[in-house]
Design a binder for these strands. Sequence first.
DNA 1: AAACCTATATATAAAAC
DNA 2: TGTTTTATATATAGGTT
Lengths: 195, 195
Amino acid sequence: MGRGKVELKRIEDKSSRQVSFSKRRNGLMKKSYELSVLCEVDVALFIFSGKGRLYEFSTDESMTRILSSYQSYKQTEELTRVNIHEKLASEYTDLSTADELTEMIQRHLDEISLKKLEISGLNQLERELHNLLRVVRVRKTQLMMGVVKNLQKQEMELKKEKKMMMNEIMAAKLKEMDHDGDAGAHDAMTDVEIT
Amino acid sequence: MGRGKVELKRIEDKSSRQVSFSKRRNGLMKKSYELSVLCEVDVALFIFSGKGRLYEFSTDESMTRILSSYQSYKQTEELTRVNIHEKLASEYTDLSTADELTEMIQRHLDEISLKKLEISGLNQLERELHNLLRVVRVRKTQLMMGVVKNLQKQEMELKKEKKMMMNEIMAAKLKEMDHDGDAGAHDAMTDVEIT
DNA sequence: AAACCTATATATAAAAC
DNA sequence: TGTTTTATATATAGGTT
C-alpha cells in the first residue's frame, strides 16, 4: 500500500515505525468512524503506544468511560475485598492531598532503589510497583468519585433553590388572585411545575 | 474504494449496508492486527452491531476479560480473537546492569514526583508505573534467561568432561584386554555408555 | 517530528455468480 | 446469505522539504 511492500512483522527502524504508527493509527480511526456512520454501529478503538499513551476512538462516550474505568474499579473492588491488602488500603485511603501521595510514593521508591537488583530484588520491585499502581488507581477513582459527589450536591442545591423560587412565585400568584378574585386561578396553578 | 464512491452517511439499503458492514469490519480487524504487529502496540477494537452482537479484536487478553463482564453483550460466542505473543520492549533490552536499570527508574520517578497529582497527573503516573513494571518484568526475564543459559553451558561442559573420562576408561579397558586376551572384552564395552 | 508528494498496494462497491 | 471478480477509491511506504 505504498511504494514498497511491507512484511507483517515489527518495523525495525524506529523512525519509520513511528511514522507508520502515526499514519496507520489515523487511518484506523478514520475507518472506524466510517464504519460507525455507514453501517450505524457502535465502535470503540483503543490503541496503547509503547510508551503507554492511549489513543482512542469511540462512538459512544459512556462506553469508553465504562471500559476505561473498569480497571480502576476492579482494583478498588479487589482492594476492599481481599484481606491481605487491608493494611495497604487503610494506609492510603486517608491520604487527602496529592502531596501526601507523592511523598508516600517517593518513600517507597527510595527504599526500593537502595537494594541490589538481582532476581529476588526484581521480584520485590515488581510487587512494589504493582502496589503503587494500584494505589494510584484507587486514588484516581476516589478523586473522580469526589467530583461526581460534588456535582450531585450542587445539583441538589440548585433544585432546592428552584423549588424555593417556585414557592415564591406561587405565593405571588396567589396574592394576585386575592386581588383579581377567583377567575383564572386554575390556569395560574398549572403553570407551575416542580421537578 | 470501489466502483462507486460512497457518501459518508448511513447506507440506507439494508442489504448493502450489511455487506459493507461485513467487509469493512474484516478490513478494520485486519488493519488493527497489522498496526499492532508492525508498530508493536496494543490494540483493542470493539464493534457492537445494531443487534448487540459483538465483534472484537484485541492484542491484550485483559481487554477481553473486561468485556466478559459486560452482561448486555454477553451473548458473544463466536469471537474471532487473535492472540499475539507479548513482546519485549526493545528500547529497554540493551540495559545491561542492574545499576543502569535503577538509574533509569529513578530518572522516571524524579520526573513524575515533580508534577501535580490531579486526575490527569494520576493518569500519567499510572502509565509511567505501568511502563516501569513492564521494564522490571522484561529485565527479570532477561536475567532468568541468562541463568538458564549459564546452567545449560555448565551442563554442556560437564557432559564434555564425562565423555573425556569415558574415553579414558575405555582406553584403560582396552589396555586391560591386551593383558587378559580377548575374553570378556564384549562385556567391558557394553558397560560404557556415552550420553 | 510533521506536511506534502507520488507510485504502488490494498480495500472495497458493485456486479456476477 | 456467501464467494469471486473487477474496476475504482483509498491508504500508505518511501521520498523530499
